[in-house]
Nucleic acid binder design. Structure first.
Lengths: 259, 259
DNA sequence: ACATCAAAACGTATGACGTACATAGTTTTA
DNA sequence: TAAAACTATGTACGTCATACGTTTTGATGT
C-alpha cells in the first residue's frame, strides 16, 4: 500500500546522477564504464534510430557490455533518460550581449529550435520534473540574462522564460512531427496530400473560421506573417515570438513611465 | 530496404478511423464492438491509471473481450492512440462572442489548460502529425474565431493560434509533471524540497541570472507577474499570454493606422 | 606479498508488452 | 441452403525493463 508502484521520482538520485557527484567507494575495481559513457552511447543510438530504438540492450551492445552491467551505474532507464536529455541538450549558445535584447532572445529561440531539429527525439523524452540538469539550467540562465537587462524583474523574467521555452517546445512538437513521417518510406503523403485530404473534411458550417483561414491560404491572399525586424527565425515561430516581444517591450516601457 | 521498418503513418487510415467513416461491408455479423467503445474504454483506463497502464490487454479486459479482438477494429495501437487523444480532448468550450477578443482567448487558454489538468496523460500521447481529428479541429476553429475578429488575417491568425496552443502545451508539460510526482507515495519532495536542493546547485558564477531570479523570489521581492486585467488564468500562463495579446493588439492597431 | 571484500560484470529468468497468424464461429446475401 | 464476408479467440514470437545469483576484479589494510 505504501509502495504505490509509482516510479521512484527520487529527486536525490536524479540530482546526484545528473551532476555526476559519484561517491566512489574505496574498495573494488575502478569502474571502466561511466555514466557519461553510457549517456553518450545512448545519444548516439537515439540520433541514429530514434528514441524508440533506445533500449538498454542496444546501449549495452553499443558499448560492448552486457545489458545488466549498465545497472551498476544507473538505477533505472527513466533516470538514465534524464541524464541523456541533459547531455543531448548540450551547452546553450553564446548570445550577443550588445544591449539588443530582442536579438539575443531571437538567437536563443533559434538555437533551441535548431536543437530540436537536430534531435527530434528530445521532444519525446518524457519529462518528470522541472529541468534540473546542468545544461538545462545553463540554457535557462542564458535566456534570463537578456530578459533581465530588458527591464523585467525576477518573477516576470521567470514567467517570460517559461513562455518562450514552452512556445519553442510546443511549436516544435506540433509542427515538426510531420517531417519525420514523409522521410520514412516512399509514401508521398507530403504536406500537399494532407492539405488536400483535410480540405474535404473541413465543413465550413462546422468550422467556419478554420475554413476561412484555409481558403485564404489556398488562394494568393497569403499575407505573410513573417518579418519582425529581419533577423532569421523559423517561420513557425517568428510571428508569435515577435508579438510577444512587442508586448514585453511595451510592458517595460509602461512600467518605466508609471514610476 | 524499401520498408525502412518505420511506423505506417498511414494518413488515410488515420482519417477514416478518426472520422468514423466505416465502410461497413455487407456480409457477416454486425460488429458489437465499435471503435468508439474501444476508445472510451481506453480513456477510462488512462484516466484511472495513466498512459503507461494503457495496454491493449487492459483495454480488452475493460471491455470483456480478448486482446486480439480489438485488432478487428483498429489496425494498431498507435492509430488507436490518435483516436483516443481526439476523443479525450472532447469538444471545445463555447466562448463569449461579445467582441472582447482578449477575454475569449483567455477563456480558450484556460479551458485547454484545465483539460490538461484533468487528463495529464494527454501530454504524453506522442503526436505523429498535425491535428486532424474532429475535436482537435473544433478546438482550433474556436480559437481562430476571436483572433480573426480581432483583426488578424489568415496567416497571422494561424500563426497566433499555433503560438497559443504551443504555449499551453509546453507550459503544461514543463510545469505540471511535478504535481504527479508528489502524489505518488508519501515521499515529501514537494516544491520546497526541490527549491532547497536546487539552491545549493545554482552557482552564481555559472548561472548569474538564474541565481539573481532565484534570490529575488526567495526574499520578499516577489513583484507578482500576475494581473493582466483581472480575469482568471493560471499563474503560469497569465503573464506570457497577456504580453502576447498586448503585442497582437498593438500589431492590429498598427496595421489599421498604416492603411 | 598477500589476503580481504566491496563493487563490477555477467547470465539467466520473469512477466508484460504489441501483434502476426491460424482457427473457429456467426450472420447476411446469393 | 451454401458460400461469402466478417468477427472473435488462442497460441506463439520477439522485445522490453529489470530482479537476482554468481563470478571476477583490483584497491586496500596487513
Amino acid at each position: 500500500m505504501a509502495t504505490h508502484d509509482s516510479k521512484g521520482h527520487d529527486l536525490q538520485r536524479s540530482l546526484t546522477l545528473l551532476w555526476a557527484g559519484r561517491s566512489r567507494g574505496r574498495r573494488g575495481p575502478r569502474p571502466k564504464l561511466t555514466v557519461a559513457q553510457i549517456a553518450d552511447a545512448a545519444v548516439r543510438v537515439a540520433d541514429a534510430d530514434g528514441l524508440e530504438a533506445l533500449s538498454m540492450q542496444r546501449i549495452a551492445a553499443e558499448l560492448g557490455y552486457s545489458t545488466m552491467s549498465l545497472y551498476n551505474h544507473i538505477p533505472s532507464k527513466d533516470l538514465l533518460l534524464e541524464v541523456v536529455a541533459d547531455v543531448a541538450a548540450g551547452p546553450p549558445p553564446e548570445l550577443d550581449g550588445t544591449g539588443d535584447f530582442r536579438h539575443a532572445v531571437r538567437q536563443w529561440v533559434g538555437a533551441l529550435w535548431a536543437g530540436f531539429q537536430t534531435r527530434p527525439w528530445l521532444l519525446r523524452v518524457p519529462l518528470d520534473h522541472a529541468p534540473i540538469g546542468p545544461n538545462q539550467l545553463a540554457w535557462l540562465d542564458r535566456l534570463l540574462r537578456p530578459l533581465l537587462t530588458a527591464g523585467l524583474v525576477g518573477g516576470e523574467a521567470r514567467a517570460a522564460a517559461l513562455h518562450l521555452t514552452a512556445v519553442v517546445r510546443g511549436t516544435a512538437q506540433i509542427t515538426m512531427d510531420m517531417a519525420g513521417a514523409q522521410a520514412a518510406d516512399g509514401s508521398p503523403h507530403n504536406e500537399a496530400e494532407l492539405a488536400h485530404a483535410l480540405a474535404e473534411l473541413i465543413d465550413p458550417d462546422a468550422y467556419p473560421a478554420l475554413a476561412a483561414v484555409h481558403a485564404a491560404e489556398t488562394t494568393g491572399d497569403r499575407s505573410a506573417p513573417e518579418r519582425g525586424d529581419g533577423r532569421a527565425l523559423p517561420v513557425e515561430l517568428s510571428f508569435g515570438v515577435d508579438r510577444f516581444l512587442d508586448g514585453v517591450e511595451a510592458w517595460v516601457a509602461a512600467k518605466a513611465r508609471g514610476g
